[in-house]
């Protein structure tokens, strides 16, 4: 089981780092640019760009936006890999051998996804860094002003809130696609359909739970 968990960590967490970093850099950059372009009033301090980037990235973009992307990348992988095992009778083979297939296939994925907050932490860091780069390249404010904005009115609980969300989203990303893969019926075409359905449901559940968690923790 230990080797299975390590394999899943490699596949689900480490394997997703590239896309998460790529998206986070650009999202952070876009948030910084959009904030800067909307600050037309000279009375508003320029450090607001850094402040808005930090708040947007930590509160929403890193945990929620990344989770939607992960629902597509990791969720589709989970559904299609388990679904393919179902249609090619590999799950039946496990059952006949006396292996608890649900435990064998799903449990390591849930454990592996417990490392998901680390991905979100990196996404936060890289997203804000992307904002800093975009801010500097576009000359919207000085780097000092941007960094001052990042430090302005920092509330540590916002990071905790973000990590709480990411743990919940990790559980959703591991379980809903597993359900759709494990209980699917049919052939190869149905594996594709199950992947699509699982992505839709995972996204919907993430969005709704995001709303509920925000109301509960910040409301």
């Amino acid at each position: 089981m230990k080797s299975l968990i390590l394999k899943e960590i490699d596949e689900l967490i480490y394997g997703s780092m590239g896309i998460v970093i790529f998206i986070s850099v650009f999202i952070g950059g876009v948030v910084a640019i959009q904030t800067a372009l909307n600050l037309t009033n000279p009375l508003i301090p320029k450090d607001l760009i850094g402040f808005a980037t930090r708040q947007s990235v930590i509160l929403e973009f890193a945990p929620t936006f990344t989770s939607i992307i992960m629902a597509g990348k990791v969720g589709s992988y989970i559904t299609s890999s388990i679904g393919t095992m179902r249609v090619t009778e590999q799950i039946d083979a496990l059952e006949v051998m006396g292996v608890n297939s649900l435990n064998y296939l799903v449990f390591p994925k849930i454990i592996a996804m417990l490392f998901y907050p680390f991905v979100i932490a990196i996404s936060m860091y890289v997203g804000i860094f992307g904002g800093l780069i975009a801010n500097s390249l576009g000359n919207y404010s000085t780097s000092t002003e941007f960094i001052q904005g990042i430090q302005l009115d920092f509330i540590p609980f916002h990071v905790t809130y973000s990590f709480i969300k990411s743990v919940v989203f990790a559980f959703i990303i591991a379980t809903i696609p597993s359900f759709h893969g494990y209980y699917m019926e049919g052939g190869a075409l149905d594996v594709g359909k199950a992947s699509t359905t699982s992505f839709v449901w995972t996204s919907v559940v993430i969005i709704i739970s995001n709303f509920v968690l925000t109301q509960l923790l910040l409301g």
């Binding site: 393919t84 095992m85 090619t88 009778e89 590999q90 039946d92 083979a93």
Partner: peptide
């Protein structure tokens, strides 16, 4: 199994 069901 009919399709061998080997683990890919």
């Amino acid at each position: 199994f009919q399709g061998s069901a080997l683990f890919d």
